[in-house]
Simulated assay, not measured.
Amino acid sequence: MPAWRAILQGLGPQRLALKVGAPVLALAIALAITMVLLRLTGADPFSSITAMVEYGTEPNSIVDILNRSTRYYLSAIAVAIGFRMALFNIGVDGQYRMAAMLAAALGGAIALPAPFGQLLVIVAAMLIGGLWASIAGILRVTRGVSEVISTIMLNAIATGIIAYLLNDKRLAEVRPGSNNVATPPIPESGRVGELNGVLSAIGIDLPGRLYGLLPLAIVIGVVYYVVLNRTRFGFDLRISGLSPTAAQASGVSSGRMIVITMVLSGMVAGLVGMPELLGASYEYSLNFPAGLGFTGITIALLGRNHPLGIAFAALLFSFLDQSSDVLQEVDVPKEIVGVMQGVVVLTVVIVYELVRRWEIRLQQRAVAAELARETS
């Protein structure tokens, strides 16, 4: 034991440097590639990047970035739960849209005093998201259907169901003076106020509305980390993904863990639409944000399924989305931001893989050196 402890201690500083240096190096390479791409489009890369930074750090932009990051973060955590058990939940997009639509209809139909109105909508969204995701888990266990295929199909089914129910003859109503169809608005008692009042009390004044459910996203990240890394359940979940046969030998049912993991992933996915629903729109309409689930996949991969890494990745993507608005003012196509995001992801994946291989090599050298000392 002392020998292995010495090995770990010897690798500690190097591993820490690799963990910190890898994302920094990846972002530096991505920035360099992005500047080359900007030059190829005929734009001045330095003025373009400067304009993005200046616009993205304005007070109004900061509020929008934090609001967008809240949704991205919840979406990425939902995906990361599946990743930790080697499950690819591509259905987060359908799960959160289905949950938001039905929860909005429920919240608009039943008026309860605060905080029961908010809890009704949030709990309903989590249950709906979990139930919808459980279909993929059950199909995987009982029929061997890949969750990749089933969740993709469930996204399409969810889109069809939402289109069917979002009708003035069913769960929605037509807004007077427009062609917009939406669920009945959630009453005041069911809405979540912005955080501006709380921040003003401590001397922080923001120009825009900051989602009141931002703290909920932070809590979800903390619970995700504690449960998966500090509990027996989290160990069983991770070992079931790494080796189902080893989990079975230790008395853990891998099939049961698959269903539970998909349900948990779906429950968190159900929360993705809540910041927008309870903090801004108060109804589900055709204009409700879509595509957040697919962005969450990218952010979870970029953050390596760690809550802090996911937080930084969500902020980075939100910053790029927000600052893209200013590119047209410097004669740069707005679509270049999508290319920049792809370059960041590709660079990070490559650098992380190189770092992983370098870590393995360092461990092998350390073990070989320790064995040589023991035999000499």
Results as ranks from 00 to 15, higher is better:
residue 320 L to N: 02
residue 131 L to Q: 01
residue 164 Y to C: 03
residue 84 R to T: 12
residue 58 E to I: 04
residue 117 G to V: 08
residue 73 Y to Q: 08
residue 263 V to L: 03
residue 205 D to R: 15
residue 255 G to M: 09
residue 302 L to W: 13
residue 199 L to K: 09
residue 328 Q to S: 13
residue 315 L to R: 08
residue 233 F to L: 15
residue 260 I to E: 00
residue 296 G to N: 04
residue 70 T to S: 15
residue 350 I to V: 14
residue 230 R to F: 01
residue 74 L to D: 04
residue 279 G to S: 03
residue 354 L to V: 15
residue 36 V to E: 07
residue 306 H to V: 03
residue 250 S to L: 13
residue 343 V to E: 03
residue 94 G to W: 08
residue 340 M to G: 01
residue 44 D to R: 05
residue 320 L to D: 03
residue 330 V to S: 09
residue 342 G to R: 04
residue 275 P to D: 05
residue 76 A to P: 00
residue 259 V to K: 02
residue 235 F to T: 06
residue 357 R to N: 10
residue 245 T to K: 08
residue 336 I to F: 08
residue 81 I to P: 00
residue 90 I to L: 14
residue 279 G to I: 02
residue 346 L to R: 06
residue 270 G to W: 13
residue 41 T to L: 15
residue 244 P to I: 01
residue 352 Y to M: 15
residue 359 E to S: 10
residue 213 L to A: 04
residue 304 R to T: 10
residue 44 D to S: 09
residue 298 T to G: 04
residue 72 Y to S: 09
residue 125 A to I: 11
residue 179 N to W: 08
residue 261 T to W: 05
residue 218 I to D: 08
residue 55 Y to G: 05
residue 317 F to L: 13
residue 178 S to E: 06
residue 21 G to F: 12
residue 282 Y to C: 07
residue 23 P to R: 12
residue 95 Q to P: 01
residue 333 P to G: 09
residue 351 V to T: 14
residue 18 L to I: 10
residue 73 Y to R: 11
residue 47 S to W: 03
residue 334 K to P: 05
residue 20 V to K: 05
residue 62 I to H: 11
residue 333 P to T: 11
residue 22 A to D: 10
residue 129 G to R: 07
residue 324 S to T: 06
residue 376 S to M: 06
residue 113 P to R: 11
residue 279 G to C: 04
residue 131 L to H: 02
residue 322 Q to G: 07
residue 174 V to M: 06
residue 71 R to S: 14
residue 20 V to C: 02
residue 10 G to V: 04
residue 335 E to K: 11
residue 2 P to T: 06
residue 136 A to P: 05
residue 14 Q to N: 14
residue 209 R to H: 14
residue 34 T to R: 05
residue 55 Y to Q: 09
residue 369 A to K: 14
residue 271 L to R: 07
residue 173 E to K: 09
residue 204 I to S: 01
residue 232 R to T: 14
residue 312 F to H: 09
residue 262 M to N: 00
residue 346 L to D: 06
residue 12 G to F: 11
residue 128 I to L: 14
residue 150 S to I: 10
residue 91 G to H: 03
residue 309 G to S: 11
residue 304 R to P: 01
residue 299 I to M: 05
residue 300 A to M: 06
residue 80 A to L: 03
residue 173 E to A: 10
residue 345 V to E: 04
residue 187 P to V: 12
residue 236 D to V: 03
residue 230 R to M: 02
residue 87 L to V: 00
residue 186 I to Y: 10
residue 310 I to V: 11
residue 264 L to R: 01
residue 101 M to H: 01
residue 207 P to Q: 15
residue 112 L to P: 00
residue 333 P to V: 13
residue 319 F to Y: 14
residue 186 I to F: 11
residue 341 Q to M: 15
residue 146 S to H: 15
